[in-house]
Design a protein around this nucleic acid. Structure first.
Lengths: 118, 118
DNA sequence: TGAATAATATAGCTAATGCTATATCATGGT
DNA sequence: ACCATGATATAGCATTAGCTATATTATTCA
């Protein structure tokens, strides 16, 4: 979950200049206390910071995680589409699948896609 | 989790003629009370039955689930290998990935594999 | 400025998944 | 037949992820 949160927070900051708890909750389809609690966990683990009633910010570790997660997400979506999954299914499935794909498999995905492009 | 349990119980019955709680726990790398609790949930949801101190048995619904899960698992492993993932990574990753692959994507996997075979 | 609204925070509940520790039941070997 | 051992069951605890309900703080607008 922390991975999803960091990715989303990075997205929101890029899009809106800030990441509010309520937007995070909305985008994840979750009640805000749930988001608040997970954000507290992000802080506890040094991935995010927040001042009360201000937005959420990522630490360096949080940004690094967000970047890694975003790249992995794209790779998974692209691979699924490359083997014939409908775009919508690929996007939806990737959300769950991405958390279980090892480095070795990701590398294979990347190589496969490069071959396909050529 | 229920999916993993039904699949494993079916495996154990096929291999040993019975599925004991302790073997389930061992195979899943979990303490036995954890397995006991999840088996209780299987029973509650009509997927399994058990008489105290006897083995665990699947209901029809449980068997159906086990079959579906096993086929899906193989499809995911085969697809991962087909795109170049090392066999071990494919086996390990499939364990998590399989729970997030939609019908549409599974069909794509199946078609892709058939094309590759030809 | 003050009040309404929107956002955030907090408290307290449920369920799933995990654990350790303890107690009970079954079985096998002497 | 009995007892040790192994399997099972039960109790109690922690964490994560979710919820509703309530309270508090910011902001906006009249």
């Amino acid at each position: 979950m922390l991975e999803d949160y960091t990715e989303l927070i990075a997205d929101l900051i890029a899009a809106n200049g800030e990441a509010r708890t309520i937007d995070i909750a909305r985008r994840l389809g979750v009640a805000h206390p749930t988001a608040t609690k997970t954000i507290a966990r992000l802080k506890r683990e040094g991935l995010a910071t927040a001042r009360p009633y201000r937005g959420i910010f990522l630490t360096e570790a949080g940004e690094a995680m967000a970047k890694r997660v975003r790249e992995r997400h794209r790779l998974v979506v692209d691979l699924l589409i490359a083997v014939g999954a409908p775009r919508e299914a690929a996007e939806a499935d990737a959300e769950g699948v991405e958390h279980y794909v090892s480095q070795a498999t990701l590398r294979a995905f990347s190589d496969f896609l490069r071959r396909r492009e050529a």
